[in-house]
């Protein structure tokens, strides 16, 4: 499941971290404490975060520090959340965003 996690590294140590369950497009996934939504999805093998509202092209993250808005998703019903800087919390409901988003 978490095959993209780095377990051994010559310099850094990554602690095991506790499991954080969340859902993505209706599927149950598990992230780790310290994750952002984007890092948890990436670790679970999810790269496509949504589709461009005009071209329909698949979207992934680009900058991972909250600068570019390439990673907008719907989180707990709220659209346009930059998931690359949004800390993952247990029970979050994360959905792909394919339009400009409608405020709840």
């Amino acid at each position: 499941m978490n095959s993209n996690r780095i377990l051994e590294h010559p310099i850094l140590e990554f602690s095991e971290g506790s499991d954080i369950p969340f859902s993505f497009d209706g599927k149950e996934l598990v992230g780790k404490s310290g994750d952002t939504i984007a890092s948890a999805l990436h670790a679970a093998g999810v790269r496509v975060l949504g589709h461009h509202f005009k071209t329909g092209h698949a979207r992934g993250f680009y900058c991972a520090i909250g600068n570019c808005s390439s990673c907008l998703m719907i989180v707990n019903g709220v659209p346009n959340v930059r998931v690359c800087v949004e800390p993952l919390k247990a029970g979050m409901v994360v959905n792909s965003q394919n339009d400009r988003g409608v405020l709840p």
């Binding site: 993209n4 996690r5 780095i6 590294h9 850094l12 990554f14 310290g34 994750d35 952002t36 890092s39 990436h42 670790a43 790269r47 496509v48 975060l49 461009h52 092209h57 698949a58 979207r59 992934g60 993250f61 680009y62 900058c63 991972a64 520090i65 570019c68 690359c84």
Partner: peptide, 23 residues
């Protein structure tokens, strides 16, 4: 260049070194 998997260098670093996830 807009395909998922085209990532900035800082993003790759953030993912690996801060979150421990292979890009």
């Amino acid at each position: 260049n807009d395909l998922p998997g085209v990532y900035g260098a800082g993003a790759v670093q953030t993912l690996m070194n801060e979150y421990g996830v292979r890009p």
